Amino acid sequence: LQLFIKTLTGKTFTVEMEPSDTIENLKAKIQDKEGIPPDQQRLIFAGKQLEDGRTLSDYNIQKESTLHLVL
Results as ranks from 00 to 15, higher is better:
1 L>K: 04
1 L>C: 03
1 L>H: 05
1 L>T: 04
1 L>Y: 08
1 L>D: 06
2 Q>W: 14
2 Q>N: 11
2 Q>P: 07
2 Q>Y: 12
3 L>K: 00
3 L>T: 02
3 L>V: 06
4 F>Y: 14
4 F>K: 08
4 F>E: 05
4 F>S: 06
4 F>V: 11
5 I>P: 00
5 I>C: 01
5 I>G: 00
5 I>E: 00
5 I>L: 04
5 I>M: 02
5 I>D: 00
5 I>S: 00
6 K>N: 12
6 K>L: 15
6 K>P: 01
6 K>Y: 11
7 T>V: 12
7 T>D: 11
7 T>R: 06
7 T>W: 11
8 L>T: 14
8 L>F: 06
8 L>C: 05
8 L>D: 13
9 T>R: 07
9 T>H: 10
10 G>I: 03
10 G>V: 04
10 G>A: 05
10 G>K: 02
11 K>L: 13
11 K>F: 11
11 K>Q: 08
12 T>L: 08
12 T>K: 04
12 T>E: 15
12 T>N: 08
12 T>V: 10
12 T>R: 06
13 F>E: 01
13 F>S: 02
13 F>V: 04
13 F>Y: 07
14 T>N: 10
14 T>C: 04
14 T>W: 12
15 V>F: 07
16 E>T: 15
16 E>I: 11
16 E>K: 15
16 E>L: 05
17 M>T: 12
17 M>A: 11
17 M>I: 10
17 M>C: 03
17 M>L: 10
17 M>K: 01
18 E>N: 12
18 E>A: 11
18 E>Q: 10
18 E>G: 11
18 E>C: 04
18 E>W: 12
19 P>L: 07
19 P>W: 09
19 P>V: 07
19 P>M: 13
19 P>S: 11
19 P>F: 12
19 P>H: 14
20 S>V: 14
20 S>R: 10
20 S>Y: 09
20 S>F: 15
20 S>A: 09
21 D>T: 14
21 D>Q: 12
21 D>N: 11
21 D>G: 07
21 D>A: 11
21 D>I: 03
22 T>G: 05
22 T>E: 03
23 I>V: 08
23 I>D: 00
23 I>L: 09
23 I>F: 04
23 I>P: 02
23 I>K: 00
24 E>G: 09
24 E>H: 05
24 E>P: 03
24 E>L: 10
25 N>Y: 12
25 N>V: 15
25 N>Q: 06
26 L>H: 00
26 L>V: 14
26 L>K: 00
26 L>M: 06
27 K>T: 02
28 A>G: 12
28 A>T: 11
28 A>S: 10
28 A>E: 07
28 A>I: 13
28 A>H: 05
29 K>R: 15
29 K>I: 10
29 K>T: 07
29 K>F: 15
29 K>C: 03
30 I>Q: 00
30 I>N: 00
30 I>C: 02
31 Q>K: 12
31 Q>G: 09
31 Q>H: 13
31 Q>C: 04
31 Q>M: 07
31 Q>S: 09
31 Q>V: 06
32 D>R: 09
32 D>F: 13
33 K>M: 15
33 K>Q: 13
33 K>I: 07
34 E>D: 12
34 E>P: 01
34 E>R: 05
34 E>S: 10
34 E>Q: 12
34 E>I: 14
34 E>G: 07
35 G>H: 11
35 G>C: 03
35 G>S: 09
35 G>Q: 10
35 G>I: 02
36 I>Y: 09
37 P>D: 11
38 P>S: 13
38 P>K: 14
38 P>G: 08
39 D>G: 10
39 D>K: 10
39 D>V: 04
40 Q>M: 09
40 Q>G: 12
40 Q>R: 12
40 Q>C: 04
40 Q>Y: 14
41 Q>V: 10
41 Q>G: 03
42 R>Y: 15
43 L>N: 00
43 L>Y: 07
43 L>D: 00
44 I>H: 14
44 I>C: 03
44 I>G: 05
45 F>V: 03
45 F>K: 02
45 F>C: 02
45 F>E: 02
45 F>H: 14
46 A>I: 06
46 A>K: 07
47 G>Q: 06
47 G>A: 04
47 G>D: 05
47 G>N: 07
47 G>E: 14
47 G>C: 03
47 G>L: 04
48 K>M: 15
48 K>Y: 12
49 Q>C: 04
49 Q>E: 12
49 Q>H: 15
49 Q>P: 07
49 Q>K: 05
49 Q>W: 05
50 L>N: 00
50 L>W: 01
50 L>F: 02
50 L>Y: 01
51 E>Y: 05
51 E>Q: 08
52 D>H: 08
52 D>A: 08
52 D>E: 15
52 D>W: 04
53 G>M: 11
54 R>E: 05
55 T>Y: 06
55 T>E: 04
55 T>A: 14
56 L>S: 01
56 L>C: 03
56 L>R: 01
57 S>N: 09
57 S>E: 14
57 S>C: 03
57 S>D: 14
58 D>N: 07
58 D>Q: 12
59 Y>T: 02
59 Y>L: 11
59 Y>M: 04
59 Y>W: 02
60 N>F: 04
60 N>E: 08
60 N>R: 06
60 N>T: 04
60 N>D: 12
60 N>C: 03
60 N>L: 03
61 I>N: 02
62 Q>K: 05
62 Q>D: 13
62 Q>S: 05
62 Q>E: 14
62 Q>C: 03
62 Q>P: 10
63 K>L: 12
63 K>M: 14
63 K>T: 06
63 K>G: 11
63 K>C: 03
63 K>P: 13
64 E>A: 08
64 E>M: 09
64 E>V: 06
65 S>P: 03
65 S>N: 09
66 T>K: 05
66 T>N: 06
66 T>V: 13
67 L>Q: 02
67 L>A: 04
67 L>C: 01
67 L>M: 04
68 H>G: 10
68 H>Y: 08
68 H>E: 11
69 L>M: 12
69 L>H: 01
69 L>V: 11
69 L>N: 01
70 V>M: 12
70 V>L: 15
71 L>P: 12
71 L>Y: 06
